[in-house]
């Protein structure tokens, strides 16, 4: 990790990089950290998705990065502007945990699994293959994507570091 630029992606935020820079987002709980990568051009994008669908948005100006159905197309747009080829883009994702388990859960509390489902169906619709994912469980994750190698590093309190 010497001299690599690190670009942080906040909650309900997205960013794109190229040239071997790292993308990082911290403290994913029920949120999903999704990365898109075109290995040939080395262009990568990461979104920290908070909610499954923009249908429920009640804000005046929608934050595209927040919802699964708007974040993925936006990320793809920004990557193609940089020169990524849509047909080569592959996806990885992590997060979507259910931090607290309760009996008789309402739908709001199942937000993690719903975020994952929504990301998957959006990727399907756009014909973007999902190479690997580490989702679900009941624990938080911090992720870091290396746009040089295409490796997604996942860190959690209980399981340490894992690469996918």
């Amino acid at each position: 990790m010497t001299g690599q630029t690190l670009v942080k992606v906040g909650m309900a935020d997205l960013n794109v990089v190229d040239g071997g820079a790292l993308l990082k987002t911290t403290g994913l709980g029920s949120c999903v950290g999704l990365t898109l990568y075109d290995s040939k051009s080395g262009i990568a994008g990461m979104a920290h998705v908070m909610l499954p669908s923009s249908d429920i948005a009640r804000e005046a100006q929608i934050n595209l990065a927040k919802y699964a159905d708007t974040a993925i197309p936006e990320l793809l747009n920004r990557m193609t502007v940089l020169g990524a080829n849509m047909n080569r883009v592959q996806a990885k994702m992590a997060g979507g945990a259910q931090m607290f388990a309760f009996a008789g859960q309402s739908d709001t509390l199942r937000i993690g699994p719903r975020n994952v489902e929504s990301c998957m169906s959006m990727l399907n619709r756009l014909r973007i293959p999902i190479v690997s994912h580490d989702t679900g469980g009941n624990y938080g994750r911090t992720i870091e994507f290396d746009s040089g190698s295409g490796i997604l590093m996942i860190r959690s309190v209980q399981f340490g570091i894992k690469e996918i």
């Binding site: 909650m11 309900a12 911290t26 403290g27 994913l28 709980g29 029920s30 949120c31 908070m50 909610l51 429920i56 948005a57 009640r58 804000e59 927040k66 945990a97 931090m99 607290f100 388990a101 309760f102 709001t108 937000i111 009941n138 624990y139 938080g140 994750r141 911090t142 309190v157």
Partner: peptide
Amino acid sequence: AIAHDMAGAILSYGLMQYGE
């Protein structure tokens, strides 16, 4: 319910209603 985890992951759970 209790969790031993990253503060961001725990607190974000209570912010969903605001996300909309």
